[in-house]
Amino acid sequence: MTAYALAHLRKAPIHTDVLEYLERIQATLAPFEGRFIVHGGSVDVLEGDWPGDVVIIEFPDLVTAHSWYHSSVYQEIKPLRTRHLTGEVILVEGIETDHSSSRMAAHLRRADNL
């Protein structure tokens, strides 16, 4: 099942380390079939606060996403980002193409006897 690396990164002044990170990250993704789905761009906040940028990278599955994140090639460049940008990074499993929120609700109702 498809998985995603999602980052919510706070705005910060551009630093040469961050530019180097941007120049090098693509090469770390290729061996893991990772591809950017969202990389910056405007954010239209409809609810709550969202200070910063969004990055979403798609991977074939969660195991591959973890393998990329923990790989030596990514770990080598990660400090270029983390020394200058703060934020949250998560890996999350996607859903099947036939996913239904109403079926999910029915399953949860049964599981919790609601």
Rank of each mutant, 00 (worst) to 15 (best):
H66W: 11
I25L: 03
V73T: 15
R35K: 04
D98S: 11
R10P: 02
A111Q: 12
Q26A: 14
D49A: 15
S67A: 15
H99I: 14
P13M: 09
D61L: 00
F59Q: 03
I95M: 13
D61T: 01
D44E: 08
S100F: 11
T64C: 02
P51N: 15
F36W: 06
V18E: 09
L29G: 06
W50I: 01
T2L: 13
A65E: 03
T28L: 06
I14H: 06
A105V: 11
P60C: 07
I56M: 07
R10G: 10
A7M: 09
T82E: 08
V18F: 11
A106M: 12
S100A: 07
F32G: 02
M1T: 06
H39E: 00
V18C: 12
W50H: 05
L6T: 05
I37M: 09
V92C: 03
L19I: 15
S100V: 04
S100I: 04
Y69V: 05
E33H: 11
T86C: 07
G52L: 02
S101W: 14
G94P: 00
K78N: 14
E23P: 01
S71R: 04
S100W: 08
L46D: 06
S71D: 03
V92D: 04
F32I: 00
Q75P: 06
Q75V: 09
I25C: 01
L114Y: 14
A7W: 08
E33A: 13
I56L: 07
V43G: 06
V38I: 07
V54E: 05
A5F: 09
Y69C: 05
E58K: 00
H84V: 04
I56S: 01
A12C: 06
H66Y: 13
P13L: 09
M104G: 15
G48D: 03
L80S: 01
E88R: 14
N113D: 14
V73M: 15
E93S: 00
M1R: 05
H99K: 12
D98Y: 07
S72L: 13
E23I: 02
I90D: 01
P60E: 05
E47P: 02
E47Y: 10
A30R: 14
I77N: 02
L62K: 03
D98W: 08
L19E: 13
L80K: 02
H99W: 15
T16R: 09
L22N: 05
W68L: 03
D98N: 12
D98I: 04
P31M: 08
D17H: 10
V43L: 10
Y21R: 00
D44F: 13
R103E: 13
G52H: 00
I14L: 12
I57V: 15
A111F: 11
A27M: 05
I95A: 13
L6Q: 02
